[in-house]
């Protein structure tokens, strides 16, 4: 498989998609909102009225149980920390799937709707190159936007909370693992599934339904942590990262068997 061929397809898709200002705006806005919500929430808890006033002792105990590494923190620090390791990674994960979900769903179904697919299928590219190209078309802009916005979030949160923590505390290892490793790995897997769905869907609208399914596992993990029924430790995250990266590789290898040029061209 030649990566340069896959990247050619991805670049063509970027040019095509981002020639629409609305598509570019939705990508930028999604991550800008993620940064804004993360920073404002942290700032409100770190600098605003004491969050301890709204929490019972039981609630604080439950929160400390979910975040055992934060046992020595004050209520204010603990609240800001909770945003950084539970809410913010969830926002980044959600946005990484949502920001380019239209582009992902559009990958093959859109080419078919606009009747541009046939010469692409007749070009000297393998199924794997074509499939990977379509996944990278969504994945690379998402990854770039996410890292840039995460960097900006880290900078702003540290600026706002350095006084509260007495050091540059953000991001903790759990957040780094979740945002920088788990989020891309999960987004890549999700995009593979949606691109495969798009290759089999009749329309972009049909393909978009595949994207919606991917939010449920994220929501389950988030709710589990918020309600205290799920304690996520660094070791769990490392294991999840290894599993997800392995799944990504496996999926790309297997996708070429599930991927059918014929299904892309034959009218449904």
């Amino acid at each position: 498989m030649r990566l340069d061929k896959a990247l050619l397809i991805a670049k063509k898709d970027w040019k095509d998609a981002f020639s629409s200002k609305a598509m570019l705006a939705s990508l930028v806005l999604s991550f800008a909102l993620t940064v804004a919500v993360s920073v404002l929430l942290t700032a409100a808890l770190a600098l605003g009225p004491d969050p301890g006033r709204y929490m019972t002792e039981e609630e604080l105990t439950a929160l400390r149980a979910v975040l055992p590494e934060a046992s020595g923190m004050t209520v204010r620090q603990l609240s800001a920390y909770m945003v950084g390791v539970i809410i913010m990674p969830f926002l980044f994960m959600t946005m990484s799937l949502a920001a380019t979900s239209i582009l992902t769903a559009d990958s093959f179904a859109g080419e078919r709707e606009r009747k541009t697919i046939e010469p692409l299928l007749a070009a000297p590219i393998s199924d794997s190159e074509l499939f990977l190209g379509k996944v990278l078309a969504s994945f690379l802009p998402t990854l770039t936007s996410m890292y840039v916005s995460f960097g900006l979030t880290c900078l702003l949160i540290n600026m706002l909370t350095v006084g509260l923590f007495g050091c540059l505390w953000f991001p903790p290892l759990k957040t780094v693992l979740m945002v920088c490793v788990l989020t891309p790995a999960y987004a890549f897997l999700g995009m593979c599934i949606v691109v495969l769905g798009s290759a089999r869907a009749s329309t972009v609208k049909d393909a978009s339904n595949y994207a919606a399914i991917l939010f449920f596992p994220l929501l389950a993990v988030f709710m589990g942590q918020v309600f205290g029924s799920l304690v996520v430790r660094t070791a769990h995250l490392l294991l999840a990262a290894i599993v997800l990266v392995a799944l990504d590789f496996l999926f790309v290898r297997l996708a070429r068997h599930a991927f059918s040029r014929e299904a892309l061209i034959v009218a449904r």
Binding site: K5, K12, D16, T116, E118, P124
Partner: peptide, 26 residues
């Protein structure tokens, strides 16, 4: 191969369409 419809990317320029395919064909 020329399919029944031109199958061109309408939002790309003439040159971008042709260059994309030329590069795919090395």
């Amino acid at each position: 191969y020329l399919p029944e419809t031109p199958c061109l990317y309408e939002r790309l320029t003439v040159e971008e369409n042709l260059a994309f395919y030329g590069r795919l064909y090395d």
